[in-house]
Design a protein around this nucleic acid. Structure first.
Length: 463
RNA sequence: UCCCCUGUAGCUCAGCUGGUAGAGCGAGCGGCUGUUAACCGCUAUGUCGUAGGUUCGAGUCCUACCGGGGGAGCCA
């Protein structure tokens, strides 16, 4: 007998087929006429299939009538057109085999709403809920879409290292990687002697694959990385994780305009793929999580992204007449409240800001001729803020070295990065997209911890 | 790291100015029905986050710690 998924069993063209279904019981309803309805879910889609279990089954009294939420079962039977309302097909069971019970007195998931906070404590069971099933189906779809987008455009998938010895980019705290005995580390001159450590120097978990990505872009053309990234900042917000997934394309012979265009096409592609492949899941998010999700995504898939320079954005903020907690001033970074005003109040849509002051951006961003700004761009989305940050890279050797010194970095520490400019330098660009950030945007989930299977945050690394 | 809020049955929460714990949902049992967030009736459930303190008496007040949430900074 052919094993099929609940997803395909719900399709009318299965009627008449003898099939096998396997999954978990969501709920059971008994009819005193001597049979029961079992709602079966196997994660293949949002919906359940209704199993009609007749009283004539040999284990009807002993097992079927004791099924409760969470039990795992195998159903053999025929897919038939449903006599009841609410579903087109159901399965008339000829056999119900119980793989495993789930004591209803202790099984945490009940047939009622649970708070996201409580479900986070049950991260081993939350994928069995409607919400998290939908989240992780969408997460899979987005991941597939990311690869498809780049692969179809001829980008090379590059695996940049997780462990790095360069304390690069000066951005944020890094997790240290060591095999030294932390209770009694070897020391020389009062300091830890890292020459005795595994890599014979301090090493860390990566905060970005960009610099290594540039190595490959300046050899093989367009490349991208897609992998885990680590930040040891002590940040406790609904938008930060210590371990998250980032996509970083790096493109040869592409300037900032081309970079922004790819970013826009990229986001639109992800959104249209999700709308095509996860319609039921998106409908669920729209119904139960955030009723603006569908309208926002539809508008975004069709409309042009706005492009506004940092300088113009400052003007808009200054002329808005709004009182902000933080002063709006050219040369300082935009605060959350400023970004939110732009995306949620002024433009009411995502916007790409570009050409930021050089003093607030890292050394690798290309300097403009005005001497004041760099070719940076951020894609800002309503509610979640920055989902993409990128730039055209500084390809001029002398300017790069000067910028490093400006920011107190020693070019010698980045000798290999500098050499990319020394030998056959090219204009190139790239950006980073936070996977969880865009998932928040797509699903409407308010907390980033609820769009990653096992969130890592300060003080929390369970499961 | 800072500011604010919060921690009471399996879950969501109520418990006024301190007097010794409650409702809904869920669960169990019974009834009813091609049912479908089913419905009706009955039953059981708690070291009130932890440790101190004030008081004749603390779920309620105070202190510390721990956990959770929201906001900020940092960023993706």
């Amino acid at each position: 007998m052919q094993k099929i998924s609940v997803r395909s069993a719900l399709s009318a063209d299965q009627v008449g087929n003898q099939v096998k279904l396997e999954g978990w019981v969501r709920t059971r309803r008994d009819s005193k006429a001597g049979f029961s309805f079992i709602e079966l879910n196997d994660g293949s889609c949002m919906g359940n299939i209704q199993v009609v279990a007749d009283g004539a089954l040999t284990n009807y009294e002993s097992e079927v009538k004791k099924l409760s939420a969470g039990c795992s079962v195998r159903i053999l039977g025929e897919i038939v057109a449903s006599q009841g309302k609410g579903q087109t097909t159901e399965i008339q069971a000829s056999e119900v085999h119980v793989y495993g019970w789930a004591d209803p007195e202790s099984y945490p998931l009940q047939k009622k709403r649970h708070s996201m906070e409580k479900l986070r404590e049950w991260a081993h069971l939350r994928p069995r809920t409607n919400t998290f099933g939908a989240v992780f189906r969408v997460r899979n779809c987005v991941s597939r879409s990311i690869h498809n987008f780049f692969q179809e455009r001829g980008f090379l998938y590059v695996h940049t290292p997780i462990i790095t010895a360069s304390d690069c980019e000066g951005a944020g705290e890094m997790f240290k990687v060591t095999t030294l005995d932390l209770d009694a580390p070897p020391k020389t001159g009062g300091k830890v002697d890292y020459t005795q450590d595994f890599f014979e120097r301090p090493s860390y978990l990566t905060v970005s694959g960009q610099l290594e990505g540039e190595i490959f872009a300046t050899a093989l053309g367009n490349v991208y990385t897609f992998g885990p990234t680590f930040r040891a900042e002590n940040s406790n917000t609904s938008r930060h994780l210590a371990e998250f997934w980032m996509v970083e394309p790096e493109m040869a012979f592409v300037d900032l305009e081309g970079n922004m265009q790819v970013a826009e096409d990229f986001i639109k592609r992800i959104i249209s793929d999700v709308m095509r492949d996860c319609g039921d899941d998106l409908q669920f998010f729209n119904d139960r999580i955030d009723d603006t999700v569908l309208a926002t995504l539809t508008a975004m898939a069709d409309g042009e992204f706005l492009r506004v320079s940092y300088t113009d954005a400052i003007d808009i903020l200054l002329k808005s007449g709004r009182k902000f907690d933080y002063k709006v001033e050219w040369g300082t970074d935009l605060q959350s409240e400023h970004e939110r005003f732009l995306t949620e109040v002024h433009f009411k849509r995502p916007v790409i800001l570009h050409d930021y002051p050089r003093t607030i951006k890292p050394f690798y961003m290309r300097c403009n001729d005005d001497g004041k700004t760099v070719r940076a761009m951020d894609v800002l989305a309503p509610k979640v803020g920055e989902i993409i940050g990128g730039s055209q890279r500084e390809e001029r050797l002398d300017v790069l070295e000067q910028r490093m010194q400006e920011q107190g970095l020693n070019p010698a520490d980045y000798w290999w990065y500098v050499e990319l400019r020394k030998y056959g330098t090219i204009p190139h660009s790239g950006f980073g997209l936070g996977l969880e950030r865009i998932l928040q945007f797509i699903t409407g989930m308010g907390n980033i911890r609820d769009v990653i299977p096992f969130p890592r945050t300060p003080g929390s690394a369970d499961f």
